[in-house]
Design a protein around this nucleic acid. Structure first.
Lengths: 156, 156
DNA sequence: CGTCCTGTAACCAGAATGGTTACAATCAAA
DNA sequence: TTTGATTGTAACCATTCTGGTTACAGGACG
């Protein structure tokens, strides 16, 4: 139903920031873990910043860090921050108002979809970043290891 | 998060079938209400049939009808029938396994997404077609009205 | 038969997705 | 103050997704 991975990537980078909290990480560094382009992450991080979840600092030694403790950031916060479209889309063409069902189905659908999304959001609100992190064991990311894999970013 | 309207359209046509139940409606007729192409609906109706929600009959006087009473068909049935991808997509590129977070984030995400989807599905299971129909008042679709709007399908 | 439907493949245009380059602005440290 | 690292953002592009369209074989019924 969905080919958009913004939510997944957002959780990934929030988990990294939580893992190293309160250290600041650069978009280039996180891009190596996500296996994507730093610009893609900066776009996403911009949404997370607008939602107040992270903060950024430019320049050498800069990067991104969490603005709250991992326990204070839920998946719902993340979901709302990066979501652009409603969960379930409506057709671009409006239904035929000459049909009884067509006339009122859109409003009915909106109500139904809202209820469904509320249930989803309630569940997302129950999980915070600390809980996500608890599923990720082991020592912090070794810079050397990553540098070995990605020659282009060997300075990291 | 989603630009795909399959679920919305599926509910629309199921509501029409429920409205006229146990009458059979053609894809061309329903396409007028949805304002789309009959082939698009037949593709979707095929999924609904594979899920056992509707049945079809070819030929003159044929069309589509519900295989169960509206009270026996929930939005969850419909959701499962027409869903193709997971609710939340994962990135096509796999995360870097050289990073602690990257190594285990995919599995964590799958678990988190499953839980969220379960909550959504539980809510969808609470609404059946009869309840959807109850939000749609008025007399059945007048054939004449639709014929007046759509000259191409004036025989309906 | 003739007509009305379904079932499905094939093709296409427009939109969405995310990867890439480019570059101005900002900050820290030498 | 210069240098280098980093953010912030626009622009562009290839790929994929979405759904609209045509075409046509096959089934059902009078």
């Amino acid at each position: 139903m969905n080919t958009n991975s913004r939510f997944a990537v957002a959780i990934h980078i929030l988990a990294m920031l939580a893992y190293r909290h309160p250290e600041a990480l650069t978009s280039a560094y996180m891009a190596m873990s996500v296996t994507t382009n730093p610009v893609v992450l900066r776009r996403l991080l911009g949404d997370l910043r607008r939602a107040g979840l992270v903060e950024s600092r430019a320049g050498s030694g800069g990067g991104w860090r969490l603005r709250r403790e991992p326990e204070q950031i839920t998946l719902l916060d993340c979901y709302k921050a990066v979501k652009e479209d409603p969960l379930f889309g409506l057709p671009l063409q409006k239904p035929n108002p000459g049909c009884t069902v067509g006339k009122s189905i859109t409003q009915a659908l909106c109500g139904l979809f809202q209820e469904a999304e509320r249930a989803l959001e309630a569940r997302l609100a129950q999980t915070d970043l600390a809980q996500v992190l608890a599923q990720i064991t082991g020592p912090p990311c070794e810079t050397q290891t990553l540098a070995g894999r990605e020659r282009d970013l060997s300075t990291l």
